[in-house]
Every structure is written in structure tokens, then in C-alpha cells.
Amino acid sequence: MTDKGGKNVVAKPKPSKKPPSKVVKSVQMDLFSQFLANDVSEVSNTVEYWERIPKYFISTQEQDKLRTAEGLAKPYEHEYKLKDKEGRELTYKVDIQPALIKEENGKYKAFFPTRTEESIEEVLKKIFTEQNHGIHDPKNIESWVRFSYGMIRRELYRMGNGLRYDQIKRSLEVMSKCILTVYEDGKEIYTGAILQDYCSVDREKYLEDTDALHITRLPVFISHAVNTLQYRQFNYLRFMECKEQLTRFLYKRLVNRYIHANYMNDYHFMYSDIQQASGLLRQKTERDNRKKVLSALEELKEKKVILSYKTDERKEGRMITDVKYTITAHPEFVTEQKAANKRTSMQQIEAQKSGVVVDK
């Protein structure tokens, strides 16, 4: 990131906050933690306002190319476009300042958040909903989660994604030390880490007990969503089992946009929209990028999210300028969306009964 004079500027995180000394009871936290599903271990919450910020799109291979010979790296800038509820297109930019992690040789190395950190974030959001592990302060709009390396590791193994304790430790460092700065139409709207005010146990205590609890503050986007009920139930197990990152992106997009999925209506989206919003179509050619979209759609069929899809290529002469994808929902996805809708309606009623004012 640079200032007006073109000089590099390091984004500075805000002063650290201390976690609450005791549990704060709130209706909002209770509602966020209650799910409508046969097996609550399979579901979690998606927070679209936070998750639509591209942050995990840099691959491990690309990360290596961004580093200098000394292992350092400059902040990475990525521009993208999103449409608001009225369909107006807004221009965004995210600057990702990498985390500098001290290696065993005493030298520092730059790390950008990747798919591994994305998985750990999802695990932490799930742990946040479990009894005695999540704290939400509605007055100060703060959400804290208590967790251990062991809890994260066991959950990842349950999803078939095993990591060693040292890998989990590294990822948590990356998430707490990299800084995101988000701009909307040129104006800065957010600066902060993925995990804020991360308090880890010391090495000696960790060696004694890998289940020793750490605590961290979740981003304000998530805290605001808990306060205002702006989140949605989704199949967390299915999401974590998706092999391709683009599949994960499309799945959450369908959860949040294809709300009234049924057997009679379909849903469509454009290739250009996915290219702008996801940051994940980074192949050498547009042809390869389009193949990547088809691969993700095939995985969505395999995971019983969609039943079928059709493509409609838009051309200028012989050149493909865009593609329209039209999908129909799988019965399992329809059932899950109906459950998510019912849960949302029940929460709205409960919030009104409890006197919770839900400001959008």
C-alpha cells in the first residue's frame, strides 16, 4: 500500500482490546448458536458481508513467486467489483499486507492467507457457536472465541483435512498478523487482521497441554452480523469437504443468493461476475478459467448442491466475451435452504419477543 506521495505505508492495527473477564449473556449470541438441523455438527453460519471480501485467493505457488530472495513480500493489491441490492456495481479494492513470521533460522518470512487459513476460520466460527467457547458483547459489538489447537486439529481431521500442531500455529499467526485494508469506491472502509487481539498460551503451557485454551476477537463484520441477524445457516460439512476453492465460493454464493431454491425455479450468474468477485480465476488463459468454473460446477453436482447446469456463451465474432450459467437445485440443497429460511423466520420472531432491535 502507498500514500499519496507513492511511498510504501504499513497499515497499523488498532490498539489491542482485552477479552471479557466473564461470559456476557445475550439473546443475539443464543440465536446465532441455535440451528435448525437434524445434526447441528454439520451446520454453521455464513456471513456474506465478511466473506465477500477476497482474502484467501493467493495460492501457495503464487505466494512463493511474490516473495523476494530474502523471503519478504510487498502488500498485494486486488481490485474487484460487487453489486448492491439494487443491482448497482461498486468498485472495491483489498490490500493484503502479509504476515512476517520468524523462522527457526531467525529470519523473517512473509506469508499471505491461503486456503488453509480459510478452513481454520470456518472451524473457529463453528467453535464460536459451541457452549462456553463463544462470547458476544452486543453493546460493544465484540465477538470472542476460545479454542485450542487440539479442537481445531480434531475438527479438521473430521473433515478429512489433517494438519500438524505446528501448521495450525503458523496459520493462526498468519491470520492474526496479516492486515487487510478494504476500499469501497476509493474510500477506506476497513483495516484489520482476520483474527484480532489473538492471545495465545505460552510455549511451556502448550507443551504441557495441547488443549490449553487460546482466545481471539473475530472481525467486526461478524460481530455486527450477530447483532443484526445478518447471517445464514449452511451445510458447513459439505463446504469443508469441497476440494476446489472456487466450488466453496460458488456454494456460499448460492446459499446467500439462491434463497428460495425449489424444483420450479432456477438461478443464473455470469462468468464476468464470478471473475470479478472471487479473485480465484487466475489461470493463464480465459479458456482455462472457464474450464475451472465448469470443474467447480461438476463438484457442486457431486456434492448434491445442484442437479444440473446449462451454459450460454456470449460472443463477439468468434471471441467468447462472457458466459451465462443457469443451474437447477438438487433436492438436498432445496431442503437445506428451506430449513435456513425457517430458522431465519423463527429468529426474527424470537428477537422481537426479546426486545432486540435489529438495525440493518
Rank of each mutant, 00 (worst) to 15 (best):
Glu332Phe: 04
Ala261Cys: 09
Gly317Val: 06
His214Gln: 05
Leu66Phe: 12
Glu298Arg: 13
Asp39Ile: 12
Leu100Glu: 13
Ser143Glu: 04
Val40Cys: 11
Arg146Asp: 06
Thr60Arg: 13
Glu188Thr: 03
Arg253Cys: 01
Lys55Met: 14
Gln63Arg: 03
Glu79Leu: 07
Glu70Trp: 07
Lys125Thr: 13
Asn289Tyr: 04
Glu302His: 05
Leu72Pro: 00
Pro138Ser: 11
Lys55Phe: 13
Arg290Ile: 06
Val40Glu: 15
Leu172Cys: 10
Val293Trp: 01
Val356Met: 14
Thr326Met: 00
Leu207Met: 13
Val323Phe: 00
Phe112Cys: 04
Tyr206His: 10
Ser308Pro: 01
Tyr183Gln: 07
Lys252Thr: 12
Met240Cys: 06
Lys284Phe: 12
Ser16Asp: 11
Leu300Pro: 08
Gln283Arg: 13
Lys187Pro: 09
Gln230Trp: 00
Gly279Leu: 05
Ala110Val: 01
Ser33Ala: 13
Gly5Thr: 13
Glu302Phe: 04
Gln347Leu: 04
Phe234Leu: 08
Thr335Met: 10
Arg158Ile: 00
Ala73Thr: 13
Phe128Met: 15
Ile168His: 12
Ser148Leu: 03
Met159His: 04
Leu82Ser: 04
Thr335Gly: 10
Tyr236Gly: 09
Lys310Ile: 03
Asp185Val: 08
Lys177Val: 09
Gly160Arg: 14
Lys25Leu: 11
Lys81Pro: 08
Tyr206Lys: 09
Ile179Trp: 01
Arg67Met: 03
Leu297Trp: 01
His268Met: 07
Trp144Leu: 06
Ile306Tyr: 01
Lys107Arg: 15
Gln337Leu: 08
Thr285Gln: 08
Tyr267Asp: 00
Glu350Met: 12
Val356Ile: 14
Thr129Tyr: 01
Lys18His: 13
Met319Val: 09
Ile259Phe: 04
Leu280Lys: 02
Cys242His: 05
Arg314Leu: 10
Asn289Trp: 03
Leu218Ala: 13
Ser26Asp: 09
Thr344Tyr: 13
Tyr92Trp: 11
Lys243Phe: 05
Phe239Asp: 09
Gly6Cys: 04
Val47Cys: 05
Val10Asp: 02
Pro54Lys: 07
Met151Tyr: 06
Pro15Lys: 11
Arg253Glu: 02
Tyr271Thr: 09
Arg217Leu: 01
Lys315Val: 03
